[in-house]
Design a protein around this nucleic acid. Structure first.
Length: 694
RNA sequence: GCCGCCUUAGCUCAGUCGGUAGAGCACCUCACUCGUAAUGAGGUUGUCCGGAGUUCGAUUCUCCGAGGCGGCUCCA
């Protein structure tokens, strides 16, 4: 989307923005028209019906612009709420903001919505849209709003919150961003002013519906070109599980039918890439019920993926000076008391096993037992390795690496495929260094991480800097400030976009996370790099400096893939199951034209296997067309087809994923090409187009 | 954990207003030996997620539990 040039219009005092547009000869309706304006001076968005007190320059907000879409979606949310209240009288309103790609509205109905209800609501919305109701802004003072909204307890609460906010009594975290579409909070022009938006009948001008809202809105419901209700869900009022649970309806709205269609197609494309679906189709992994939620088993083909990923990662870590360690899956509680994890994350850990208690004949306790926990984090164990003997400054930075299995008791409603599991393998490293080394270490670490991710085919990144959560941290403010500044400097030096994430840090230190965009533009949080001055303190880690004194090392936590399981999921979705040749579970499918060529192909397969290539010969009783179809569906990068003429020429024929083919390639050359593609870890799918001169 | 929906063959799904069930693909057998996305014919496959209840009878109804999906909250 290329940014449209800003179009300016002068609105004189006492004239509506819409009239000014007409005078300027600008068509308001249509995709290139205006659905709202932005006042240049105040930067506030205004309705087209806005009449400024003094003359104003306004920018035109087009329907398909980001702001235009937000307004369109917000107005569609209003239409939905109106439809819901008409169909289900007595349903209370929560909030209804625009969100990325759509909108939602929260309701408190007498019973939850059903899929049939959605169909009915959608139909009612279509009627409202067709009737061309006008959105009209009506300023209102707090007391009048309280009186008018007496029956809407949630709206009433928003009015109250607004009052507090404008008087500076409310902390920002009590007021969700999304609620600001209803009432204005904070500083700035118009802060604290309330307004109602009335929906007026097109013919009679009679008020049909009204909602507390700051606006702006479309001039008319007719300006909603395309919308669709997507799903229902529950959501807590004001985002807290302590509050009442409301019923949310999600919808989407677009500036044209084609845009809606394109969006729905994009969703379909994402569904096709879903790693849970591909995991079954490609026989990669499964989640047996017998194991429990969020616990995956990897089948041989998924096992190949993991092994290739891990092997390459290991090799790169060796090159980068890491040392490999191993730690157990279970430990006494003491470890996580020292580290502090039990204070913060006990809810997220599997409950303890109480062992070794002894009782006398009368049942009295003779020896108190001990709690053992399944390991949720590797870092404390790595600290013990560091502490196992005296350390010298000469061995720093000490880089300890482990594919460490951890178990976390994720709440039942959150486990999701391979991306949110209860048992996973972190590619976890902890680097211990001196304060002076931190900056260089972070710098090289970040480039190591990005380089490795690129090797796996991800190359579109941005960084996020998560800083201290005032309600959840340990350590001094000075340490946090130093750590945050260092991370910010290194992140900025990388040249990548840096997005702040205030309050997003873990209790023991700030972090940079690497966000990667996949092939269809979705972002995944992958690597995290955390700076930690606290665990070295808690574990009393020391090293002997050149000065002969004992010093405390700084610790850097780093997960690169995040977890192996999750990374398998991410790569599966990124590649849509069509993995690069080096990662493909089966790299070559041998397809004989008839049974006559099976032995010939077996010979070729032996040559490939000798070079470490994974080959399968399809010697089933099917016709070769069917074999090609099967191989195609299993997304094998190379199909090697052999018929009588190939045998005669000592050759094979290639077919690639894109359907391209190259016939009569001499065996030696074919083997060399395949091996080359695999050894060089080429991430793009092999294709005949790479050989244009044949 | 909360709310809603869902669970039938290895996979994707149909069906039974309560009388123990079907399709396509996969798989197996036979015939065909074929040049770039489905050869034909025949065949096998189910505790209808688990437990309890109601009933002459439950895959179907009720309750409890498990697992999945979509959200919310959470995510070291």
């Amino acid at each position: 989307m290329s940014p449209e040039p800003v179009r300016l219009v002068r609105v004189s005092a006492g004239t509506s923005a819409l009239d000014a547009l007409h005078e300027a000869g600008i068509e308001a309706s249509g995709p290139a028209g205006a659905i709202a304006v932005r006042d240049r001076a105040s930067r506030e968005l205004r309705d087209l019906s806005w009449v400024p007190d003094a003359g104003a320059d306004v920018e035109i907000v087009a329907p398909a612009s980001p702001e235009g879409l937000s307004i369109l979606r917000h107005s569609t949310a209003h239409v939905m709420a109106q439809a819901v209240q008409e169909l289900f009288p007595g349903t209370l309103l929560g909030i209804g903001p625009p969100i990325e790609n759509g909108f939602y509205y929260d309701f408190l109905p007498s019973r939850p919505f059903t899929p049939d209800d959605l169909v009915a609501i959608e139909k009612k919305m279509a009627e409202i849209i067709k009737s061309g109701q006008r959105f009209a802004r009506r300023p209102i003072d707090d007391d009048a709003a309280r009186a008018e909204l007496a029956h809407e307890k949630f709206k009433l609460e928003l009015v109250g919150l607004k009052g507090n906010a404008s008087e500076g009594k409310s902390r920002p975290d009590e007021f969700p961003d999304e609620a600001s579409v209803e009432v204005e909070v904070g500083a700035g022009a118009g802060a604290g002013a309330l307004s109602m938006y009335d929906n007026l009948d097109a013919k009679t001008g009679e008020r049909v519906w009204t909602d507390l809202c700051r606006g702006p809105h479309l001039p008319s419901t007719r300006r909603i070109p395309a919308f669709k209700l997507m799903r229902t869900a529950a959501a807590y009022w004001r985002g807290s599980e302590k509050n009442e649970q409301l019923q949310r309806i999600y919808g989407t709205a677009w500036a044209s039918r084609d845009d809606l269609k394109a969006y729905l197609q994009q969703l379909e494309e994402a569904a096709k890439r879903d790693h849970r679906k591909l995991g079954i189709e490609l026989d990669l992994f499964s989640f047996p019920d017998e194991l429990g939620s969020g616990l995956a088993v990897f089948h041989p083909k998924g096992g190949v993926l993991r092994k290739e990923m891990e092997d390459y990662s290991r090799a790169k870590h060796v090159e980068a000076g890491y040392e490999f360690v191993n730690t157990p899956h279970i430990t006494k509680a003491q470890l996580y008391e020292i580290s502090g994890h039990l204070d913060w994350y006990a809810d997220g850990m599997f409950p303890p096993m109480h062992l070794d208690a002894e009782y006398g004949p009368d049942g009295e306790l003779r020896k108190p037992g001990q709690d053992y926990y399944l390991k949720p984090m590797n870092c404390p164990m790595h600290c013990l390795i560091y502490r196992s003997r005296g350390r010298s400054y000469r061995e720093l930075p000490l880089r300890l690496f482990e594919f460490g299995s951890v178990y976390r008791y994720e709440k039942s409603g959150v486990v999701h495929g391979l991306t949110r599991v209860r048992g996973m393998t972190q590619d976890d490293a902890h680097i211990y260094c001196t304060a002076e080394q931190v900056r260089d270490e972070l710098r090289s670490l970040l480039s190591f991480v990005l380089g490795l991710l690129r090797d796996y085919g991800l190359d579109d990144f941005y960084l996020e800097l998560s800083t201290k959560d005032p309600g959840k941290y340990i350590g001094s403010d000075e340490l946090w400030q130093t750590a945050t500044d260092t991370l910010a400097t290194v992140a900025t030096e990388s040249g990548l976009e840096l997005v702040p994430d205030p309050g997003g840090a873990t209790f023991y230190g700030p972090k940079i996370s690497v966000q990667a965009r996949d092939a269809i533009g979705r972002t995944w949080q992958l690597s995290t790099i955390q700076l930690d001055f606290n665990l070295p303190e808690r574990f009393e880690l020391e090293y002997q400096g050149a000065d002969g004194e004992r010093h405390r090392p700084v610790m850097i936590h780093r997960a690169l893939f995040g977890s192996i399981e999750r990374f398998v999921g991410v790569l599966t979705e990124h590649y849509g199951g069509a993995f690069p040749a080096w990662l493909s579970p089966v790299q070559v499918a041998g397809i004989p034209i008839s049974d006559e060529q099976v032995d010939y192909l077996r010979g070729v397969a032996e040559l490939l296997r000798a070079q470490g290539i994974r080959v399968e010969i399809d010697d089933s009783a099917e016709r070769m067309q069917k074999k090609i179809r099967s191989a195609q569906r299993s997304k094998v990068p190379f199909m090697l087809i052999a018929g009588a003429s190939d045998v005669g020429a000592g050759a094979v024929s290639f077919r690639y994923r894109d359907g391209g083919q190259r016939n009569g390639v001499p065996i030696e050359q074919a083997v060399a090409e395949i091996v080359d593609t695999v050894v060089r870890r080429v991430n793009s799918s092999p294709t005949a187009a790479l050989y244009p001169h044949e």
